[in-house]
Design a protein around this nucleic acid. Structure first.
Lengths: 230, 230
DNA sequence: GAATAACGTGTATTTTTAACACTTGCAATA
DNA sequence: TATTGCAAGTGTTAAAAATACACGTTATTC
């Protein structure tokens, strides 16, 4: 519902900030940039940008991510709108946070566009400006919830991956150890992975079989009432 | 991350819209208003209003709800930011949706402040303007999820309620029938209700015992690792 | 061909969830 | 005051899901 005229209403700056998660051998990572302008110049922050008149929030988030990384077709999801009055000391700004999942290994990042951007181990990430720490905490909670209920983890892995990688990913996200046999049994019971004939030989002499997430099979099963659950 | 100067960035209207759920004998209800100004004058919509410079989103949502109903201290939670470019044909407006839970029975609503506001059975609610139908669907999904994992349902009931009311509430929210014995067993196992000596005699000759949610006991249990789950 | 180091596999136990039907207590009425 | 009606209240058993747990296998390297 809106007032009789919109003319007299306040207009405000609207930003998007992106919490970008990645995953590699060492665990969950987050992509941060060093701010090169005031306020808070030199401190670490999420990547972000302002919403423009001619785009919606999803488009703004996609644009911001693309500008920094050169990547498109990345999993993104709106998280929450942050609106504390003094959250940005320079000017009143409402920020809508998005979280994104990137497979660090396959996407080469022909060097990040912004040389001030770096991947941090999630557990070793520095303090961030404004309310960005809060955003990261909320994103992490959302990631955990999604990981348990949607086949979202695959966004963080290469197309082909081993069971050990998949388990390590879930262990990183949930921040607890899982039993190898129970994990495999559960995954296999869902029957949404395709086991390949290939092996990954990089982690052991025996090697471990590669798998691929079968999105088509998954969607068929969803239509039949199936739901993914770790 | 923000540009070097904020001066050149676009400023936009920011609104809040509230999905207000209630519950009475007949089930889940939603509070809607008939719009008395253009565009879409005469159609049903959620209550809403614009964000002002000197308040945050939570405050705006609280204010909007208070203006319409006279109520304070209502459960509210931010839902999602809607930003499609043409969502409001009058002018570009981003709307942040909130959902609220009200105990219809106890709050007398000395008459709703706005005579164009009405409670609708959720299943008989009219078509709404703009993207408000979409907002309601998302709110309902959130309500279902919350109801399963948080003791949020009590917000929709009077302070004292019967087991049958509580069960009917959950049946409305989840839109499925529950087994009476299993339901009571589950609730009792959680041990967060206080059984009173009073009975409600309005629904049967035998009468049914009244219960009260024990928020203190609940919080203590949460600290010990307990989590509510229906 | 022996040693290595991670891979891959199955079963028993516990816990949780789901299914299911009869007796109780109060008030109204005969 | 006895009878009737009507929703409230109550426990057990079976099925399913989650958890705990240990050893043989395989390809490579030395």
């Amino acid at each position: 519902m809106h007032h009789n005229t919109y003319q007299q209403e306040d207009k405000l700056l609207l930003a998007v900030d992106c919490i970008i998660f990645g995953f590699d051998k060492k665990g969950l990572k987050i992509l941060l940039v060093k701010r090169n302008f005031e306020p808070e110049k030199g401190k670490w922050s999420l990547i972000g940008g302002f919403l423009k008149k001619d785009e919606n929030l999803d488009e703004a988030a996609t644009r911001v991510l693309h500008t920094l990384t050169g990547l498109k077709d990345i999993y993104m999801e709106q998280l929450y709108a942050y609106s504390k009055i003094d959250r940005d000391p320079a000017e009143r700004t409402i920020s809508v946070a998005y979280f994104a999942l990137i497979d660090v290994a396959s996407h080469q990042f022909e060097g990040l566009q912004d040389e001030d951007a770096h991947w941090f181990d999630l557990k070793k990430a520095p303090d961030l400006i404004f309310d960005h720490n809060e955003m990261v905490q909320k994103a992490l909670a959302r990631l955990r919830r999604r990981a348990l209920n949607w086949p979202i983890g695959f966004e963080l892995l290469p197309e082909k991956f081993t069971m050990r990688q998949l388990q390590a990913l879930y262990e990183s996200i949930l921040d607890k150890r899982l039993d190898k046999r129970n994990f495999i049994n559960k995954i296999n019971a869902m029957d949404v992975l395709e086991k390949l004939d290939e092996k990954d030989m990089s982690s052991s002499r025996k090697g471990s079989f590669l798998y691929r997430f079968d999105a088509d099979k998954y969607h068929v099963k969803v239509k039949e009432g199936f739901s993914f659950r770790i």
